[in-house]
């Protein structure tokens, strides 16, 4: 069952950037594409417990700020060493300039 929660306004995330979002003891990374699309993944890298919101967004890729682990943030797919395990992705939607995340 969908459980949409409000994250923030779209303007709070720069294009081609990422922001941390914490809710109910869970943490997510929320990404904004240059074309305005918004994606969400689990907040921490699957290699070590490092938050991806401190990392660098390059095209469709989020790079962990600690060890260069890279994921496609649209699919969650790990791109090679030092990350082997894919990242969980979460549905998002944008309404009236606000970002919503389905946390179910």
């Amino acid at each position: 069952m969908a459980n949409w929660i409000e994250v923030c306004s779209l303007d709070e995330i720069d294009p081609e950037d990422v922001m941390r979002f914490d809710h109910n003891q869970h943490s997510w990374a929320i990404y904004r594409c240059p074309n305005g699309e918004v994606y969400a993944t689990s907040g921490h890298c699957t290699h070590e417990r490092i938050h991806l919101a401190d990392g660098l967004v390059m095209d469709d890729i989020i790079e962990c700020p600690k060890h260069n682990g890279r994921f496609n943030y649209k699919t969650g797919k790990a791109q090679g060493a030092p990350v082997c395990e894919h990242l969980k992705t979460w549905p998002t939607r944008v309404e009236n300039g606000l970002i919503f995340l389905n946390v179910e």
């Binding site: 290699h47 070590e48 600690k66 060890h67 060493a81 030092p82």
Partner: peptide, 13 residues
């Protein structure tokens, strides 16, 4: 190259 890629990640952790 593979061994050191991983050992260096640990060095940074």
């Amino acid at each position: 190259s593979h061994v050191w890629k991983w050992s260096h990640a640990r060095h940074h952790t």
